[in-house]
Simulated assay, not measured.
Amino acid sequence: MDFSNVPFLISVWILPVILAVTLHEAAHGWVAYRLGDRTAYMMGRVTFNPVKHVDPFGTLILPGLMLFLSGGKMMFGFAKPVPVDIRNTYNPRRDMVLIAAAGPASNIILAFLSAIAFYAVEFLPKDVDLWVAHNLANSIRINVILCVFNLIPLPPLDGGRIAVGILPRPLAMRVAALERYGMFILLGLIFLVPYVGDVVGLNLNVFWYLVGLPAEVITEFIVNVVGI
């Protein structure tokens, strides 16, 4: 990694990360509010103010570590989860699905908007256009990855909550019971399984197959649709 480029790399990654996670969490809160739950609204979380959503580790430290470890090629992060009391909604089982889906949906929308914004880059002053282009490209990547990652059907991720909402009740209860172990399972899949694979000489990069590969397909789709 060329450390002379660190300030530039940070400047073209940090804004897309903050915008992506802020919009993601604000979308959860806004949909919950519209469906009858005022919990996030009363706590000031139905807002696009990043300060309300930033998590010191997930929004700042983790992205920085990933940027360093990937040699400036990748950054990923998360914000403080928006509090939702599903009991306050009009139709808890249905509304849980809608609230959970709002986050990933907002990221896909932002990815499309970032792609469309590329058409304005050619009208910007020289040097500024390169910086903006990097921000927009990273915005597409981050938002698509955030969407796909959160749709993994494992609580406490959005995909897990969607699964609980649409599966038959007996199966939904089994999936819901995984929530207490969900983050440990994810960390194991992302870090432990690939490590074991390296030790035994196998490619067990589960994160790539679950998130990286689908994200590449979706990114290519967005780029082709927008025509950039």
Rank of each mutant, 00 (worst) to 15 (best):
G72W: 08
D95V: 00
L98P: 03
R93Y: 00
G71R: 02
L65Y: 11
M75V: 14
K80P: 10
K80G: 13
N88G: 06
R93H: 02
M66W: 03
S70Y: 04
R87S: 13
R93P: 01
F68D: 13
L98G: 04
P83W: 05
S70E: 06
D85T: 09
V84L: 02
R94E: 11
V84S: 05
R94L: 00
M66C: 14
R87G: 11
R87V: 03
R94G: 00
D95F: 00
P81K: 09
N91F: 01
Y90E: 13
D95K: 09
M66A: 14
M96V: 06
V84E: 08
G71H: 01
V82W: 03
G64L: 09
V82Q: 01
F68R: 09
G72T: 04
G72D: 02
P92C: 11
K80S: 11
L65W: 12
V84K: 01
N88E: 06
I99W: 04
I99V: 08
V97N: 01
P83L: 03
A79D: 08
D95C: 01
D95Y: 07
V84W: 07
V97G: 05
M74F: 10
N91M: 03
G64V: 09
F78K: 09
V97A: 07
F76M: 15
P81G: 15
N91T: 12
N88A: 02
P83E: 00
P81H: 11
Y90N: 14
F68S: 15
M96L: 00
T89V: 01
D85Y: 05
F68Y: 15
L69P: 07
F78S: 15
K73L: 08
M74P: 02
F76P: 13
G71I: 05
Y90D: 13
V82T: 15
F76A: 15
L98W: 05
M66G: 14
A79I: 13
T89Q: 03
F78V: 14
F76H: 14
V84D: 07
K73C: 02
L65N: 14
L67W: 02
M96W: 10
M75L: 13
D85A: 05
L67N: 13
N91L: 01
N88W: 02
V82A: 14
T89L: 04
P81S: 14
L98E: 06
F78Q: 08
M74G: 07
P81Q: 10
K73I: 03
D95R: 12
F68E: 11
